[in-house]
């Protein structure tokens, strides 16, 4: 398969190499390499403060990198042509919330109008992906539990049927049943050919759903591969063990 100068295949959905970013004078990313292929669930793993969120913000075009190479769906996320593919990306930030004084359905309708296209279809899809009942959606979102808000946001994120889904800590702070539901949904989306980039520091989640895992630490990529490859490479019995060895290896 043809590769570009970064070693990414030309049809990869996300290709980052040597990406750097400083925020308020502090270098947050020192050289992040990442490749996400079509139809895979790619886990971006790292400790808190490793640079996961900044990396995904660069991928979705919210933050502009200072250096390195980046292509997302064939476009430079810091360039003028990114607007053409922005609508093909669904992004759910880690701490995103909903409009509390609007009902669940009004939240969905609002985003559907902003995304453009057939609003009714998108609303139906959001309702399906969120799994919330009509009764729940008719209530103000301010009365929802954190898990319900997360499901509502996930439905909104997926209602445009994006080619690339970027989820920042999708199971953080939600109960086991809601977490199980999210994992099942992610597998279903990957089976449909969607590419998913999921950030987490939960290695059990990474092992459970990840096709490939990239470990970053202090703003640099340290390892990348399938969970099986990584466990073989480090002679480890779990991805968590791999993660600890990789990170401790740098710290030592």
């Amino acid at each position: 398969m043809d590769k570009n100068h970064c070693g990414c295949s030309y049809d990869s959905v996300v290709c980052l190499c040597g990406v750097e970013k400083s925020i308020k004078g502090r270098q947050v990313l020192r050289g992040v390499d990442l490749e996400v292929d079509e139809g895979e669930i790619h886990i971006l793993a790292g400790l808190n403060g490793a640079g996961k969120t900044t990396t995904v913000r660069i991928i979705v075009g919210l933050v502009v990198r200072d250096g390195g190479f980046a292509r997302v769906l064939g476009e430079d996320p810091g360039g003028g042509g990114f607007g053409r593919v922005r609508g093909m990306i669904g992004y759910l930030p880690e701490d995103a919330s909903v409009y509390d004084r609007l009902t669940g359905l009004e939240n969905i309708e609002f985003y559907a109008r902003l995304y453009g296209g057939p609003v009714e279809e998108m609303v139906e899809r959001a309702m399906m992906y969120s799994g919330l009942s009509i009764e729940d959606l008719s209530r103000r979102a301010g009365g929802y539990s954190k898990g319900m808000k997360r499901r509502l946001l996930l439905g909104i994120t997926l209602m445009t049927e994006p080619s690339l889904v970027v989820l920042d800590e999708p199971t953080s702070g939600i109960d086991p049943i809601a977490s199980h539901r999210v994992k099942r949904l992610l597998r279903r989306l990957a089976a449909k050919g969607r590419s998913l980039l999921v950030t987490t520091h939960d290695m059990r989640l990474a092992e459970e759903i990840g096709d490939r895992v990239t470990i970053i630490h202090r703003g640099s990529t340290l390892e990348s591969g399938s969970p099986g490859e990584l466990m073989d490479r480090y002679g480890a019995e779990s991805l968590e063990e791999v993660f600890v060895r990789v990170v401790e290896g740098v710290e030592a």
């Binding site: 919210l62 930030p93 995103a96 919330s97 985003y111």
Partner: peptide, 13 residues
Amino acid sequence: ERKTLEKLLLTRA
């Protein structure tokens, strides 16, 4: 502060 702006900026608006 209510964590709704980031998602809004990622729409086509």
